[in-house]
Design a protein around this nucleic acid. Structure first.
Lengths: 154, 154
DNA sequence: AAAGATTGAGTTGTCAATCTTC
DNA sequence: GAAGATTGACAACTCAATCTTT
């Protein structure tokens, strides 16, 4: 196998993938043990609660959660069935509906946070030194911004 | 919303999640553009090629890819249908089959690596300074090792 | 009984096509 | 026509139950 990637770079990449899988899996298990919403549902609730006017269109939800529009539709379907969100017709643009939190949705969000936060702390933040946390935040922010595709758009 | 996590810690966590989603999504798109195997399939092929005797049981595959046993079974099913792997009865323990690479599987692995490597370099390694890469590798290795659950096993 | 592998049923996502509004 | 949302058909996984071998 030809190299193509420095040994250090590859090691960092693999550690990155392993860390993600490990932490996400454990937090997800914690949430379930406490009978709270899943991480995906939590992401939806947080996204809505942080949006201007505390409402979000499926399209924006899809962008933020890295989903397709249809995926967002079905996700909202399930959350609506569970009574955590509600679709409300938008005034200015009647093409789509705005998704808002119900009272139960707000409560579910508030209840889930302590467990989620404990997971983030115990499994992630506490394992890092303050310096590492800073370096990681800067580096990951740059990576997420992703200056360009790895391939030019053919 | 009560704090529970330091602002820096939370920022690092969110950047971490965003970076993962962004890079994985882009590399996956690159692989598809070049008509190569998906990242999941690539992981399977690599895992087998790195295993002792270049063979792996579905059980071990499941552990390594963070899958259930049944998930591994179905994944191997598809790879076998595509002609990239083959199930071979094990001699000493006839309960399970060993999964090995076919010639086509080895070739698919070799073909995919340059594109995958380019993605890792362009979207991840090149964005980091050598110092950052080292810090990241150390920190992520510790996170992946995950000293303990965030909750005691009730 | 325990462990590996598999299968049936159900969940959650994607893609392509369609409907509605801009 | 373009964009938002949805739907039908399908893909990939999980859970629980089953079969086989240890």
């Amino acid at each position: 196998v030809p190299r193509l990637v420095s040994a250090e770079g590859l090691a960092a990449w693999r550690a990155f993938l392993d860390a993600h899988a490990a932490v996400i899996g454990r937090i997800e298990a914690d949430m379930e043990r406490h009978r709270l919403v899943s991480l995906v549902w939590y992401d939806v609730l947080v996204a809505i609660s942080e949006a201007p006017d505390r409402q979000l269109r499926p399209r924006d939800l899809a962008r933020r959660l890295v989903l397709t529009r249809s995926g967002a539709t079905r996700l909202v379907d399930r959350l609506e069935q569970a009574g955590l969100v509600r679709r409300e017709p938008t005034e200015d643009d009647r093409r789509g509906a705005a998704v808002v939190l119900t009272t139960a949705g707000t409560r579910a969000l508030r209840r889930a946070w302590p467990v989620y936060a404990a997971g983030i702390n115990t499994l992630f933040v506490d394992v890092l030194t303050p310096d590492e946390a800073r370096v990681l935040r800067d580096a990951m922010t740059r990576v997420a911004a992703a200056p360009r595709q790895s391939e030019p758009p053919s």
